[in-house]
């Protein structure tokens, strides 16, 4: 997650991937080198681990895609003059939505639809992870200096040109920060997808717990942690290098 301490951000930018990869290698190394029984071997092997990790990633990517495709346009719409009065209401709704526990949304969606699988997990997680991007898009556009918008209109740019070429680019740093938070929420919540048969690394944690094989549990938990920290690190990189050059 984003911190407000630039120095802390720098530490994480350099230290996080190294610590994560070393730690992950160490834990998996210790587990793989020990004697594994049948159950453990069935769960701790390259194809299972890669398959579940891939599923976890896909889920996170799908959630993020939904969040961006819905959150950014919705945020933009809510900053247009005609829709501006609705913005506070939508934000309050979104805030309450985020106060709802992710597990509750996931379970409810599953119970109500009576279906299981990838999208049954992805949709409620997306709803849960929507707020950071939505809020940061709104705030990012609102914090653009009004005199810049007026300067843009004043030199003859149309309203849509001002949005495309001034407001959105200037909001990019905040949108990216929101996206990073959403990504972390998505990866984190995707560990719960197994509750509705959505797969992901939560499967290993649950299997390990249910079958009393802590090696399996730890493998899943450590992988999920590593994935979240790496995705967060990618988000940090994006924040740093995708923001418009003049703003860095």
């Amino acid at each position: 997650m984003t911190t407000t301490n630039p120095r802390a951000e720098r530490i994480r930018l350099f230290a996080q991937p190294v610590v994560v990869l070393v730690g992950l290698a160490a834990v998996l190394g210790v587990i793989a080198s020990g004697p594994l029984d049948d159950i453990e071997q069935r769960n701790i092997n390259v194809s299972t681990i890669l398959g579940l990790t891939w599923q976890h990633l896909l889920l996170s990517v799908a959630v993020t895609a939904i969040v961006v495709l819905v959150g950014v346009p919705l945020g933009v719409v809510l900053t247009r003059r005609w829709a501006r009065p609705a913005a506070p209401f939508v934000l309050v709704l979104a805030n309450i939505g985020q106060a709802a526990p992710a597990i509750g949304l996931l379970v409810l969606f599953f119970l109500v639809t009576g279906a299981t699988g990838f999208w049954i997990a992805a949709l409620p997680i997306a709803l849960y992870a929507l707020l950071p991007v939505l809020r940061n898009t709104i705030v990012g556009i609102q914090q653009v200096d009004p005199s810049l918008v007026e300067a843009g209109r004043g030199i003859g740019m149309s309203a849509s040109a001002v949005l495309r070429r001034i407001e959105l680019p200037l909001a990019v740093p905040l949108i990216l920060a929101g996206l990073r938070t959403s990504l972390v929420l998505a990866v984190g919540t995707a560990t719960l997808a197994f509750f509705v048969a959505g797969g992901g690394l939560g499967v290993l944690i649950d299997t390990g717990d249910k079958l009393g094989r802590y090696s399996v549990l730890v493998t899943g938990a450590v992988l999920a942690m590593a994935l979240a920290l790496l995705v967060d690190w990618l988000g940090a990189l994006a924040e740093r290098y995708l923001a418009p050059r003049g703003l860095r």
Binding site: S147, L148, E150, A151, G152, G154, R165, I166, P169, L170, P244, R245, G246, L247
Partner: peptide
């Protein structure tokens, strides 16, 4: 305009 109103990202 005042303070030039230059677009900071351009």
């Amino acid at each position: 305009i005042q303070q030039a109103g230059l677009f900071p990202h351009m």
